[in-house]
Design a protein around this nucleic acid. Structure first.
Length: 467
RNA sequence: GGCGACGUGGCCAAGUGGUAAGGCAAGGGUCUGCAAAACCCUGAUCACGGGUUCAAAUCCCGUCGUCGCCUCCA
């Protein structure tokens, strides 16, 4: 079995072969930091975190680069509005984004380059592109990429020159040779952040920074380049144009794009203003819920986000966790045959899990395998299995859910110091139940429930857990 | 207007040629003082219309609908 990845460039699933055996060079487009990150950003981060974790599970060493765009029009506009220094503003949102990712249990990238720290590299590339005739400066101090010179421009988004031009709604800058040309370097207006350059004071265009950082941190050719599918055109198309015109080599082997998170049937985006920030979401829900939502559907498809789905996902998470519960009170051991059946299911689960993930990261299929394992564990527990008998299957559940980045083990919601007292209460209540004092037993159960402690009774005794 | 994606049971959602995974909800049952949990059982022919094929949710054409991109966007 080999891993297959859907490549946006070819619109097909392809066998995954890296440039260098055992190593993956992956670049993922990060956010422009001018506002709070929303759950749509989280989706993208989670998708590529899951990709990365699985690649590592499969034995690859992954060099993962995610950039921050920390200088651009919107940052400047925002800073001007509030009177804050644009660099300070960007720094603030970068720190917040990094905190968000940590809260979401997203592994830190190997490198987080920032546009403002790569100016030299960017300028060098622009100069080379000019020297090769792929770019030209204007009298105003801007530099544009000469799109017409790149014969296969449009191959990623499958657009012809005419398609692009036909739909162009941008005001045509008279200084451009062609309306299709895009900026590599933007001259600075008074008061804007700027750097000296051969073309005068200015700052880099959006697309060139990714080409430059990818080249700088990963080399001329990389294995995976990722981002939201809203970046396919023009951003990634332009990156290809810049990078391949510069090096003459294929830039990226596999273009991977995630679908958009949908809120009320629309893409969640800063410009539409219909966003739920990551901070808002995490106030009411644990990070695993969002991750499980992402896992439950294909990463390339739109993801439905609404209260109903969030609630369904919370229950599904509970169900996964039910597989980790200890044996029943008074468990006398399951029959050998039952334990063997569980063992067989565990083996099948691992196979199914890998087969699903190998098929273009079919996380929904992988999850199905996990749910089947949960059912098998619960069946075996019901048949009287001891903790020792359940443990191997439970360990597998933890291992595989961990590959997906899920944290099933409950961090103690209550304080561990309370445990002895709860144990005492529960055992006293058990005595009350033996005396058939139902009213007071139920009262204890209800009151503890209000405090987040769930008591479950059975013939053999009672168990409790934090909700 | 151009380019692209999608439309699977009440909801979310896998599956892309051989008679439909999984989760949530619902109904029935086991267990149980009650409750909860767990377990068992029950349900879809895959937007619509044509076509290709021994065989299609899965390929082709058309219609309708939804969404994305074409402007900043994960």
């Amino acid at each position: 079995m080999s891993l297959k990845i859907y490549n946006t460039l070819t619109r097909k699933k392809e066998d995954f072969e890296t440039l260098e055996p055992g190593r993956v060079r992956m670049y993922v487009c990060g956010p422009t930091v001018y506002a709070n990150a929303h759950v749509g950003h989280a989706m993208s981060a989670l998708v590529f975190d899951i990709l990365r974790r699985y690649l590592e599970y499969r034995g690859y060493e992954v060099r993962h680069v995610m950039n921050f765009t920390d200088v651009d029009d919107k940052i400047i506009a925002r800073a001007n509005q509030s009177g804050e220094d644009p660099f300070q503003l960007a720094e603030r949102y970068i720190q917040q984004y990094e905190r968000n990712l940590a809260d979401l249990n997203v592994l830190p990238a190997t490198v987080n380059p920032r546009a403002t720290r790569e100016i030299e590299h960017i300028q060098k590339i622009i100069q080379e592109l000019i020297a090769k005739g792929y770019a030209y400066p204007t009298a105003d101090g801007d530099v544009y990429f000469r799109v017409r010179k790149d014969e296969d421009y449009g191959k990623l988004s499958r657009r012809s020159f005419d398609d692009v031009r036909g739909g162009t709604r941008v005001e045509v800058d008279e200084a451009k040779e062609d309306p299709l040309d895009f900026a590599l370097w933007k001259s600075a207006k008074p008061g804007e952040p700027s750097w000296d350059s051969p073309w005068g004071k200015g700052r880099p265009g959006w697309h060139i920074e990714c080409s430059a950082m990818s080249l700088h941190h990963l080399g001329e050719q990389i294995d995976i380049h990722g981002g939201g599918n809203d970046l396919i055109f023009p951003h990634h198309e332009n990156e290809i144009a810049q990078s391949e015109s510069l090096t003459g080599k294929p830039f990226v082997r596999y273009w991977v794009h995630n679908g958009m998170l949908q809120l009320g049937g629309e893409k969640m985006s800063k410009s539409l203003g219909n966003l739920v920030t990551i901070d808002d979401f995490l106030k009411d829900h644990e990070a695993n819920v969002l991750r499980l939502m992402v896992l439950n559907s294909g990463y390339r498809s739109p993801l439905t986000f609404n209260d109903e789905v969030v609630e369904q996902t919370e229950r599904a998470l509970e169900r996964l966790r039910s597989g980790l519960r200890p044996c029943l009170p008074g468990a006398g051991g399951a029959a050998e045959a039952a334990v063997q059946t569980l063992q067989q299911q565990a083996e099948r689960t691992r196979e199914d899990f890998i087969a699903a993930m190998d098929d273009d990261f079919n996380t929904a299929g992988a999850l199905a395998a996990l749910f089947e394992l949960v059912r098998a564990i619960n069946q075996t527990r019901d048949s009287g299995a001891t903790d020792d008998q359940l443990r191997p299957a439970q360990d597998l559940l933890l291992e595989l859910s961990g590959v997906l980045g899920l944290q099933l083990e409950q961090q103690d919601k209550g304080s561990a110091q309370a445990d002895p007292f709860i144990n005492l209460l529960v055992s006293v209540r058990s005595e009350l139940r033996r005396q058939k004092l139902w009213a007071i037993s139920d009262q204890i159960r209800d009151r503890l429930a209000e405090l987040g402690v769930v008591i479950e009774d059975s013939r053999e005794g009672s168990t409790w857990r934090w909700e």
